[in-house]
């Protein structure tokens, strides 16, 4: 469990984080998203106390970190595994030696150490690369080693700061599968800092949108994607571009598969007494749910309120599309 409460971080007159409140429950994967410069990395560094917050508290598993002495802090940090951007491995150490580093700090015997390192490398599928140096590994493999090192002290919380940025889609996918496995098998609470919406869609249970040092929107991914008019939901599931139609009025629709009858489109059309044109549509999984998004064209002569109500009766969230919506989707967050 991670609980961030009233967190503020300032450097002189510059406030980088401004009153952050955020909570991640046990065995959840949370994602913090936001444009570069929003304060994501500072937030990550505050959580493992590499930076001291100016005000506010960070609680990890019922231990409040900001009030700890240097000595206790070292101990508390061991409960928080960190996976750094581009892995940050020591170039002169082998994969196994890199993974062993936190265990050496702890003062484990060589025999114990070898055993643990073996287990860790096995878990991330890198046992066959144990004696390779970082320069001999691919980006995805290095990141696996980084995750193994993050897990070395059996932390209850794993912090991942842009762990997949710069990786190709296959490598990203396998790293995300690995993270999901850690949550499911070991019950690790994971906080992912990312600017990649794919990552959020694929693994996150909860999400928070950080902008200019504040959380502007947050919630369970499953809830966020149902919202029809939020920046975060648009960024998570952008609508496909649709051709403009003169005689039709464009609507943006959004639904969760479990909340509707599959025949909703025909039913809504019948109720309105018109043919609804599907201009673009996508169904995707996000937050463990099938979420559908459509851009449809409806006869411009119909009353907007009537149309919205007809969709609402089918369990569909509808909003009139305005010019520039599509560009907005793409630029919303990343």
């Amino acid at each position: 469990m991670i609980e961030i409460s009233g967190l503020t971080k300032s450097y002189g007159a510059t406030t980088v984080l401004d009153g952050i409140d955020f909570r991640v429950d046990d065995a959840q994967i949370a994602a913090i998203v936001g444009p570069s410069g929003a304060g994501k990395s500072t937030l990550a560094r505050c959580i493992n106390l590499l930076e001291r917050p100016t005000t506010g508290t960070i609680t990890v598993d019922d231990r409040e970190l900001t009030s700890l002495s240097r000595r206790d802090l070292r101990d508390a940090r061991r409960q928080i595994g960190t996976v750094f951007q581009s892995a940050s491995l020591l170039r002169r150490l082998t994969a196994a030696q890199n993974v062993a580093l936190p265990l050496r700090y702890l003062g484990l015997s060589d025999a114990e150490l070898r055993l643990r390192v073996r287990d860790l490398l096995d878990r991330v599928g890198m046992l066959h690369r144990a004696n390779h140096y970082p320069a001999q590994l691919s980006g995805g493999q290095r990141q696996r080693i980084g995750i193994a090192r993050g897990l070395a002290l059996q932390p209850s919380v794993l912090l991942s700061d842009e762990a997949t940025s710069g990786l190709d889609p296959d490598a990203t996918r396998s790293i995300l599968d690995l993270l999901t496995g850690l949550r499911d098998d070991l019950g690790v609470t994971i906080l992912v800092i990312t600017h990649e919406m794919d990552v959020v869609r694929t693994v996150a249970d909860v999400v928070a949108h950080l902008d200019h040092g504040r959380i502007v929107e947050s919630g369970a991914v499953a809830d966020v994607v149902r919202r029809s008019d939020s920046t975060l939901s648009r960024a998570l599931l952008p609508l496909p571009p649709a051709p403009a139609e003169d005689t039709l009025r464009t609507w943006r629709l959004r639904y969760a598969a479990d909340a509707i009858d599959p025949r909703w489109l025909a039913r809504a059309g019948r109720e309105l007494g018109t043919d609804i044109a599907v201009l673009a549509a996508l169904v995707e999984e996000a937050g463990h749910e099938q979420v559908g998004r459509l851009t449809v064209g409806v006869d411009a002569g119909l009353d907007d309120r009537r149309v919205a109500e007809a969709f609402a009766r089918q369990g569909i969230r509808a909003a009139r599309a305005t010019d520039g919506d599509v560009e907005l989707d793409e630029q919303a967050i990343a």
């Binding site: 061991r78 750094f84 020591l90 150490l93 936190p102």
Partner: peptide, 28 residues
């Protein structure tokens, strides 16, 4: 790279451990 010192701190290393295990090793 400064991140490597962060790695040392975040994994529970003391300053002296970080000097020996990271600074001296990487700078060799």
């Amino acid at each position: 790279p400064p991140e490597l010192l962060d790695v040392g701190l975040a994994t529970g290393g003391s300053r002296w451990q970080i000097v020996r295990s990271i600074q001296l090793v990487e700078a060799l």
